[in-house]
């Protein structure tokens, strides 16, 4: 395979990954690493570097659209970014010392968990309406548009959410993924911020988290331009197409298919990691 064929194939595969990722809301980044490592035999460190780049691209390009809806909470996002960026730098530093086979196994396990999480239905958390005093002090409470007008919400359990965000950041730096699912859980389930606010704020945070990891990867020489180029352009265009289609498409079946693909990839990552082939 020469450079041209290689680049075009990677571009097409990334396009599909970005498209399905946006359409199903699972993010394209989560499949880029296994795709490159298993499908194209790319060293997992190069694959993570390229994946991080694509994560920043999708997060930043989607931000404008999310902002218009008026859901995201910039204070909650920025405050929690202290945890995610610190975690990301720690995770990225661990990645450079860990054997690639171990990274592959951890990656597989995280993929399995995300595939599982995307298949269970989310339940609304009802509970006491006592906000965290810390949240009030940090002016995190806000309002968001609903069909019945602006609705107020309060943030709870700030320290627990903050800790979970550190882990989300560390996983992002270690594996080159956006950790969007874990970020949403931290805000939606732990801090009990409305789901819509959680997902849009999470998207905003993903880019900043990935930039913190990408800096470390760039400096370590894990970001290869020849590989990152088709991945970034593919995922970016694919996810833009996916977002456009999102409004009209029925995504339930797609979600199941995509979850299955992730499931198979996860098992392959774990198997190849244990066999010492990645």
């Amino acid at each position: 395979m020469n450079v041209l064929e290689f680049s075009v194939l990677i571009w097409l595969a990334s396009l599909l990954a970005g498209f399905l990722g946006a359409l199903t809301g699972l993010g394209g980044g989560v499949v880029i690493v296994p795709l490159l490592a298993l499908g194209f035999g790319v060293d997992i460190r190069y694959a993570i570097g390229a994946s991080l780049i694509s994560v920043i691209a999708t997060s930043s390009s989607a931000a404008a659209a999310y902002v218009k809806e008026g859901f995201s909470n910039i204070r909650i996002g920025m405050f929690l970014e202290i945890a995610t960026t610190t975690g990301a730098v720690v995770g990225a530093s661990i990645a450079s010392r860990m054997p690639t086979t171990t990274i592959a196994i951890i990656f597989g396990v995280v993929l399995l968990i995300s595939a599982y999480l995307s298949s269970v239905t989310r339940r609304e958390r009802e509970g006491q309406n006592q906000p965290d005093p810390l949240a009030t002090h940090l002016r995190m409470n806000g309002s968001y548009p609903t069909p019945n007008g602006q609705e107020q919400y309060q943030a709870h359990a700030v320290p627990a959410g903050f800790s979970l965000m550190f882990i989300a950041g560390a996983l992002s730096g270690l594996l080159g993924i956006g950790s969007g699912a874990l970020k949403v859980i931290a805000m939606d389930q732990v801090m009990r911020i409305p789901f819509k606010v959680s997902t849009t704020t999470s998207n905003f945070m993903i880019g900043v988290t990935a930039a913190a990891s990408a800096g470390v990867y760039l400096n370590r020489g894990y970001v290869d331009p020849g590989l990152a180029m088709p991945v970034m352009l593919g995922v970016l265009i694919g996810s833009l197409m996916g977002t456009r289609l999102l409004v009209t498409a029925k995504t339930r079946i797609l979600r199941i298919i995509f979850a299955l693909v992730i499931f198979v990839m996860a098992l392959e990552m774990i198997y190849n990691g244990i066999a010492g082939r990645l």
Binding site: I53, I56, A57, S59, S60, G207, V208, A210, A211, A214, G215, L218, V223, P225, A228, M232
Partner: peptide, 8 residues
């Protein structure tokens, strides 16, 4: 790629 990393 550097411009991209700089956006966030």
């Amino acid at each position: 790629l550097l411009v991209l990393i700089a956006t966030p």
